[in-house]
């Protein structure tokens, strides 16, 4: 009742949004953007996670290097990554590369932080156990520290996948010419509120989908850890 007086320009009717969404999917107009944003999200996510994990593992294993570099790592993370967008546009141009890099930068930190936290919080007694058993450093990393910290690292991955989608969409606001984020900007230019809401729904569904996939993969990893693959 209250909303009945509101202009569709401000708040479109749900039926109109659904119709726009359906038309876009059936005609294929939205698929291309969905595909671009999905690819950017996953590429940036994978890149950020792998690099964040590797650097995290190195810093966790070398506490002195970590103390030396930590202020810089922290500073680099406090910089709002989206504010770097314009620089990336100059360096890499409009399009996927810039968005992927922004997304990767956003995913990097949760992985770095959780990997370091996980690897350095193995109980003293278990580390002493491995020392008593004459385990090498690599054995201790692969057979004690990594499996022990797996739940923490996987929690970082779950945070990263959500941030990745946000990174990709907002990255497209700045640097994109294709994708769901770029489409939102385009729709805004045309005052097409209905399309904007349809895109919101699509982004939300994609986020839920990616998150679920990660949860399934996570469960698999924890199971294979128990089967002794680690």
């Amino acid at each position: 009742m209250l909303l009945s007086g509101v202009s569709p320009l401000v708040l479109p009717a749900p039926s109109a949004v659904t119709e726009t969404l359906w038309d876009g999917l059936v005609s294929g107009a939205l698929w291309q953007h969905l595909w671009v944003t999905g690819a950017e999200t996953l590429l940036g996510f994978a890149l950020g996670c792998v690099i964040g994990f590797l650097i995290g593992a190195i810093l966790a294993e070398m506490p002195r290097l970590r103390r030396l570099l930590w202020p810089y790592v922290l500073a680099s993370q406090v910089v709002p990554k989206l504010a770097l967008g314009p620089i990336f546009i100059i360096w890499f141009g409009f399009g996927m590369t810039s968005t992927v890099i922004i997304t990767a930068l956003i995913c990097f930190f949760p992985l770095l932080e959780n990997t370091i936290t996980g690897l350095s919080n193995v109980p003293q007694e278990k580390r002493d156990l491995f020392r008593m058993l004459g385990a090498t450093r690599l054995q201790t990393l692969l057979r004690l520290k990594l499996p022990t910290s797996m739940p923490v690292i996987l929690a970082g991955i779950r945070v990263a996948i959500v941030l990745a989608l946000v990174g990709a969409v907002v990255g497209e606001f700045i640097a994109g010419s294709k994708g769901l984020g770029a489409s939102i900007i385009a729709a805004q230019g045309m005052m097409d509120t209905t399309l904007i809401f349809a895109l919101f729904i699509l982004i939300t569904l994609m986020g839920l989908f990616f998150y679920q996939i990660i949860v399934v993969i996570e469960r698999r990893i924890l199971q294979s850890r128990q089967k002794g693959t680690f």
Binding site: P123, E125, K126, D128, L129, R131, M132, L133, G134, L144, P147, T148, R225, Q226, G228, F230
Partner: peptide, 20 residues
């Protein structure tokens, strides 16, 4: 240094939870 001649039992069982 830690010697393989010594078996050590800690205050907590310290079993690896992902192994049988």
């Amino acid at each position: 240094g830690p010697s393989s001649d010594v078996g050590f039992v800690f205050q907590t069982p310290s079993l690896l939870e992902w192994l049988t």
